[in-house]
Amino acid sequence: MTATTVAQSAPVIRGEEKTQQVERRRMPGVVSTGVGRGVAEIRVFFRNRTAVVMSMALPVALMLLFGSIFKMKVADSTISMRDVVVAGVLASGVMSAAFGSMATGIALESGDGTLKRLRGTPFTTTSYFLAKTVLILTLALVQTFVVLALAVAVFHFSLPTTVGRWFTFAWVFALGSLGTAFLGISVGSLVTDRRSIAGAVQFPFVLLQFVSGVYYAFGGLPKAVQYVGAFFPLKWMAQGMRAALLPDSMAVLEPAHSWELGRVALVLGAWVIGGFVLCLATRLRRIRRDFL
């Protein structure tokens, strides 16, 4: 090849490289694709009125039911047992949105081929989980708002008035959502038949509500039941919500007679880390196989 030919071809090569670089820069990133799909899933969900009503109806119905039954005063003359129920239902609603929605959504999308159809798009595994996270956080926030609004309107529930209590509420909400979402990913990965996913999710979730002190004081449960409930995150989520929303005088109802916020953070943090490791061992391997 002559020097003249090389000189003529060099600008062409540099032009092709520049075009490829521009195309790569124009490709959507992990965050943008994940958030974009998450917003799309939110729109699809709220267009399904039946799904919206059913997801909001259960925590609201349980709060109204148990709040109407338990009217007795506890700890002091100003707090009733229904306030304990409100805090527990909030924790239960967060777990329902994170654990139930994540497990059900992933199991269904694995079974109907949604993940395989995403193979030809610039959509990564990380983007997929980011989209699901956007969806479940939105659902959990909406449920929390609805429950608190009804609690204030129907039961005259008093909301926290200090920044510290709202901060406690925020980190309990965040750690609880992440920990139970990772648990939902793992459960969803173990279900091979889409028709059985509802039972696989509802059975442990309903059982946990009754051994975690969601609808009554955890300290009133038998010791053996307390040990079982203390192993799972819902008990600590409910305790953290009570610490954020109820007066400190209510802490006497806890087994340790204190809120134990340090232990709440430690246990929920351990579930976040352990749940993530469990996902790596189960669900991520299957999803990567579906994508690749």
Results as ranks from 00 to 15, higher is better:
D83C: 07
F276T: 00
L253N: 00
K223T: 13
D290S: 11
I69A: 10
G36E: 01
Q21S: 11
I273R: 09
L183A: 15
G113F: 10
V146F: 02
R283L: 12
L175A: 04
S186Y: 11
K235P: 03
L137F: 14
E260R: 12
L65G: 06
F232D: 09
L148K: 03
G93A: 06
R14V: 07
A51I: 10
L58M: 13
A61R: 08
S249F: 00
L64T: 02
V191M: 07
G240M: 05
P122C: 02
R14N: 14
E16I: 14
S189Q: 12
M63G: 04
Q226N: 09
G262L: 01
F291D: 05
L208P: 08
A140R: 00
I106F: 05
S249V: 05
L261I: 02
L175F: 11
I69H: 04
W271A: 01
W171L: 01
Q209Y: 06
V172E: 00
L253R: 02
L148I: 09
T50Q: 12
E16S: 10
W236G: 00
D193K: 15
K132I: 13
I136A: 01
G67P: 13
F173S: 02
E260Y: 03
V206I: 15
L90T: 00
T180C: 05
G36Y: 00
P247C: 00
A51C: 03
Q209W: 06
V94A: 06
A97H: 11
A200Q: 08
G229C: 07
A131G: 13
A251G: 01
G105M: 01
V264H: 01
R288A: 02
T124R: 06
G34I: 11
G188H: 10
Y215S: 08
L253T: 02
F232M: 07
S96I: 11
G111F: 06
L280R: 14
V267G: 00
